[in-house]
Design a protein around this nucleic acid. Structure first.
Length: 483
RNA sequence: GGUCCCAUCGUCUAGUGGCCUAGGACAAUACCCUCUCAAGGUAUAGGCACGGGUUCGAAUCCCGUUGGGACUGCCA
């Protein structure tokens, strides 16, 4: 029982941020590197004004989707409030805390051009007792320095004089993040605190709190190792914002990213596996990951690259795996999970599973995300082809020669042997008779049958669609011209 | 303003004093393949922010400059 004990401690205040997903992943790597490693999910929900239960569900299901399995939890930090208030009382008794009745305006007014940040310790020696508007502050040392031994960055030194007397408990009695987090980390015997770089300035405060708690409880829990991950930034090199940037992990799932691809890409933000190969199995990521190798500088979350990875992962799927993966987008009525805000172009009755199974290999190598599949195969299931008006006008409506070719095709296809090879040969001949190469000759047929100029290979598509439906569509296209 | 962090192709990174005329991946461009679109193949272009040191030798170590970022809440 002396393996690493790590925790992922998000606050449920919104969608599951991709940066959070990466923090969770790196924590999970550390836990999974040891047979007795422990990965804990702790929901930090002490701010009752901002937390919503649905966001907790979002975190839990997103982590399950990514395959980040838990050894303990999910726990609610709010469930530990007795431990938090107990810790507060002990610190108060031990002389580490004092009451303060300053309002935010008071603090700001007194600050003036004082160069040290935050609160100036005005109430530290006023000997205030608990009152209706008294918050509890931690009396930070005024001399010396606190060194955060960061596994990624090395020692980071903070002069104690610049660490202000931060609030530990609100006047309402509610214990705040800094103390709640440290109390829980001590109780959980966390060995590695792995989190975003925005928490680096919190680290010395929490170390001070940790040591004070050790002294005041008589229980000497060793300090955890710290690792502050480089931030994920947008194109403007600013921290990824929930409001302005596409950061919701859920939305990538809805779009049809594979969890393995998502995990692989996330792992590459601030770290890289050995050698020149970037697409590597999860087990390799686990085996090779080292906090000491994580880069120090912010990383841009590049959706383009992730798309490319996802396409690669999709192409590596077996047919059965692909069919299973794409099911929520093509037959959502039969799956446990459905992407939100996506409508399928066909009805349950129109969908033909056997036909889709034959068609699937054609689209599997053509999509980067699974949500692209429906529009690519819709013409197989819809009663009439979903026409792209511009394509239709260009290749059929305004092109008499192509109309003649369609008429010839109708004649020829009526008796043609119905397979891709012979259809291919017959369109070559049809084209030659009219002085068209295959590239030109296939276009009007493709447009008439599939509705657009781009799509899966034409002759296989015709074979799968069948003679009758193909002929019907060719006729409909011609009728559409004269209408 | 203060504290702290950071700095290799457009982007993510390899690189831990000589293996670097700096490697890979995504994106870009060209060509090949080809029934469209993709995929695949081949090739091209593109980078050590700047200035000082240290050293026989620096992308790698030190200092400074510049630039970027995080934090600076009775949020987490």
């Amino acid at each position: 029982m002396n393996g690493p004990r790590v925790r992922f401690a998000p606050s449920p205040t919104g969608y599951f941020h991709v940066g959070s997903a990466r923090s969770a992943l790196f924590n999970w790597f550390i836990a999974r590197q040891s047979p007795d490693g422990v990965f804990i999910l702790r929901i930090e929900d002490t701010d009752t004004d901002r937390n919503r239960e649905e966001w907790v569900d979002g975190i839990v299901s997103a982590m399950a989707w990514l395959g980040l399995d838990l050894d303990a939890g999910p726990f609610r930090q709010s469930a530990n409030h007795v431990a938090h208030t107990d810790a507060t009382q002990r610190l108060l008794d031990g002389g580490y805390l004092y009451f303060c009745d300053c309002t935010g305006d008071d603090v700001a007014a007194r600050k003036g051009d004082n160069k040290t940040p935050g609160y100036d310790g005005f109430c530290r020696d006023r000997g205030l007792a608990r009152g209706e508007r008294t918050a509890l502050r931690f009396a930070t040392p005024r001399t010396g320095a606190t060194v955060v031994p960061d596994l990624i960055r090395g020692d980071v030194e903070f002069q104690n004089i610049v660490i202000d007397d931060f609030v530990v408990a609100k006047s309402s009695g509610a214990v705040l993040y800094a103390l709640a987090n440290v109390t829980d980390d001590r109780n959980d015997a966390i060995t590695h605190v792995i989190r975003g770089e925005e928490h680096l300035p919190n680290a010395p405060k929490q170390m001070l709190l940790w040591s004070a708690l050790n002294a005041v409880t008589g229980v000497d829990v060793p300090l955890p190792a710290y690792a502050h991950l480089p931030l994920l930034v947008n194109e403007q090199r600013k921290k990824l914002s929930k409001r302005k940037d596409p950061v919701a992990t859920e939305s990538y799932r809805d779009e049809g990213y594979l969890p393995e691809a998502f995990v692989n890409y996330l792992a590459l933000l601030g770290w890289s596996p050995r050698g020149d190969e970037e697409i590597v199995p999860r087990q390799t990521l686990i085996n090779e990951f080292r906090l000491e190798d994580v880069s120090h500088s912010p990383a841009f979350f590049d959706v383009k690259k992730m798309r490319s990875f996802n396409g690669e992962y999709i192409r590596r799927l077996s047919l059965d795996e692909f069919l299973a993966a794409v099911a929520p987008w093509v037959r959502p009525w039969a799956t446990n999970w459905q992407p939100t805000d996506r409508t399928v172009p066909w009805t349950k009755e129109q969908f033909d599973e056997a036909l889709f199974t034959r068609v699937a290999p054609l689209v599997q190598e053509r999509v980067a995300v699974l949500s692209e599949v429906p529009s690519m195969v819709a013409f197989f299931f819809l009663d009439t082809a979903p026409y792209d008006d511009a394509d239709f006008a260009k290749t059929i409506a305004n092109d008499p020669l192509n109309q003649a070719l369609l008429a010839a095709a109708i004649e020829r296809f009526a008796s043609e042997e119905w397979n891709a090879t012979s259809l291919h040969a017959s369109v070559v001949e049809l084209g030659e008779a009219m002085g068209l190469n295959l590239r030109k000759a296939q276009a009007p047929i493709r447009c008439a049958v599939t509705g657009s100029l781009v799509g899966p290979p034409l002759f296989e598509s015709l074979e799968f669609l069948g003679r009758e439906r193909t002929l019907t569509r060719l006729r409909e296209a011609l009728e559409r011209c004269s209408a």
